[in-house]
């Protein structure tokens, strides 16, 4: 044991030898969890890919009805929220309590903006008769295949939206804890782990946006 570990001693759980081992284990655990998340979304990406190959033309047609402005704006919103999150992790390492709380709240706020825009878009889809089984109407050819596209669209964006919602919840709790000075003196592991999750959710959207909104040329 060296001198720096005296402050950290209270933070190290009994099963670990030192804070370094604890942090490494937590980070590895989170990355393994993210690998499972890739495959959790993966089932839907697989379905998308298969039907994209089989019904390529119908998918391109169906995709043109989606609102690319909302989708694109949402991409930018998430990217900027990721930037704030990265700075939040930095602030936690530098022990800047106010900064950390603010950045976490900012990230959560942008998450809420994303969800709001998503809600507006879903409503628009409903009005345009694009929700499968809920008054789905399709004027063009292959209405069945178009409905399949919209089923996958709602499944993928819906699963993503659930992840964003969970993320917002986590961020708000962390912001409260950060305000109460929970993450001082090197106890920043939780923030870093939450950050990894938030960035991952952002990455998923980076794929959803082009695959769903920009299937072929518009």
């Amino acid at each position: 044991m060296n001198t720096t570990t005296t402050i950290e001693a209270g933070l190290v759980h009994q099963q670990f030898d030192d804070i370094g081992q604890q942090r490494e284990a937590a980070k590895l655990g989170m990355w393994i969890f993210l690998a499972t998340e890739v495959l959790f979304f993966g089932g839907l990406f697989l379905s998308y890919t298969v039907y994209r190959f089989v019904y390529g033309h119908a998918f391109v047609e169906a995709s043109r009805k989606l609102d690319v402005v909302i989708g694109g704006t949402n991409t930018a919103v998430l990217l900027i929220s990721s930037l704030l999150m990265a700075f939040a992790v930095r602030a936690s390492k530098l022990d800047q309590r106010r900064m950390l709380t603010g950045l976490l709240l900012g990230t959560a706020f942008l998450g809420c903006v994303f969800m709001l825009l998503k809600g507006v878009e879903y409503h628009k889809d409903y009005v345009d008769h694009l929700v499968p089984r809920m008054g789905f109407k399709w004027e063009g050819a292959d209405p069945g295949n178009a409905e399949l596209f919209y089923w996958i669209y709602f499944a993928m964006t819906g699963l993503h939206a659930i992840h964003v919602t969970v993320g917002i919840g986590i961020l708000l709790v962390l912001a409260l804890l950060a305000w109460r000075n929970t993450f001082s003196n090197g106890n920043h592991n939780t923030i870093e782990i939450a950050g990894l999750y938030w960035h991952f959710v952002d990455i998923v959207w980076c794929f959803l946006f082009p695959l769903l909104y920009l299937v072929g040329h518009r």
Binding site: T36, G42, S47, V54, R133, G144, W151, I152, A155, L159
Partner: peptide
């Protein structure tokens, strides 16, 4: 690496059963 794929598969299957349409439904292709 395998379990999450089962999870999403069963989830999609259940949604299809509840919703009445889904990606395994031959009616839609």
């Amino acid at each position: 690496l395998a379990t999450p794929v089962l999870a999403i598969t069963l989830a999609v299957m259940c949604v299809e059963r509840i919703w009445g349409v889904g990606i395994f439904d031959p009616k839609l292709g």
